[in-house]
């Protein structure tokens, strides 16, 4: 599984990755520039990637985290979002019906919607899945003049990240963002400042599908169970009514049976 590792200490916020992303995804650069100014985090349907300032002099790359157990994939009712073997979480516009549940489900607030279009679709980073298929690295990684981004096998990158933290002589915080949070992501960060502003939860937060999928797996059982118990209850009640009618049943104050007899269909 491929992943992107970001060393936040190396980023200067030059946004060359954004420019490369816009070019690679054939987005409107002028509109992207406008969106940069008007959005809070710089992401829009024309800007899949942004480099927000975490604090003075510290910038990070923000886009889809490509979770290992993506909430959006689990949420999409038509299965329009899938997690591929190589890592990218990709979106199939041909399936989408526009319910926007993925946007609600994403803990990082990443998916954007083409609100202004009468035929709108969800837009987000797909980790350059097409380029990856052609054997290229994602455009943002390629564009970084600073080598703040690196692309490769996730396990190898995790080893690199820990090695970097170990060799950094305390420069980095001892945490690889994305290693375990929400079940792990394919975009990893090492940093010298806290990255909570990106939406990262407390370390070790479990994945969102692990909250819902065990529950939904029980659905058929619950449905059949309810149906069975309904039939059971009804059978008991009918029998009691029949016994009461025949005169050899319980003649106690079973108001229910006697009352039913009086009204009767």
């Amino acid at each position: 599984m491929k992943a992107i590792l970001m060393d936040a200490t190396r980023c200067t916020g030059c946004e060359r990755c954004v420019a490369a992303c816009i070019e690679a995804n054939d987005l409107d650069p002028v509109q992207a520039q406008v969106d940069r100014a008007v959005t809070k985090d710089g992401l829009s349907e024309n800007r899949f990637l942004s480099v927000p300032k975490v604090e003075e002099g510290r910038f990070v790359r923000l886009s889809c985290m490509h979770c290992l157990e993506p909430s959006c994939v689990s949420a999409c009712l038509v299965g329009g979002i899938t997690k591929t073997q190589d890592g990218p979480v990709v979106y199939d516009p041909d399936k989408c019906i526009g319910c926007r549940y993925c946007m609600l489900a994403c803990p990082f607030h990443i998916p954007r919607y083409e609100w202004s279009s009468p035929v709108p679709f969800m837009r987000k980073c797909d980790m350059c899945a097409g380029r990856q298929n052609d054997g290229q690295v994602p455009a943002c990684v390629e564009a970084c003049p600073y080598e703040a981004l690196s692309f490769g096998d996730r396990d190898a990158l995790l080893r690199d990240a820990h090695a970097l933290i170990g060799s950094g002589e305390g420069r980095y915080l001892d945490r690889v963002w994305g290693e375990h949070e929400f079940g792990g992501t394919c975009v990893l960060y090492v940093s010298d400042v806290d990255l909570g502003v990106l939406g990262w939860p407390a370390p070790g937060t479990e994945s969102i599908p692990s909250l819902t999928e065990p529950l939904i797996a029980k659905t058929p059982v619950i449905g059949l169970g309810v149906m069975g118990s309904l039939l059971g209850i009804n059978w008991v009640i009918r029998r009691r009514m029949k016994l009461a009618r025949d005169g050899n049943g319980p003649h106690d104050g079973d108001g229910r049976a006697s009352e039913t007899d009086e009204i009767g269909p």
């Binding site: 009712l77 399936k95 989408c96 926007r100 549940y101 599908p209 939904i216």
Partner: peptide
């Protein structure tokens, strides 16, 4: 009217995702 592409309302009939609560609700 709420879904972005109303003419695709039938998609969940043929495109299934059993992990989605919205699918179940639908």
């Amino acid at each position: 009217f709420d879904i972005g592409l109303p003419w695709r309302f039938w998609h969940p009939f043929v495109m299934w995702n059993g992990h989605s609560f919205l699918f179940e609700v639908f």
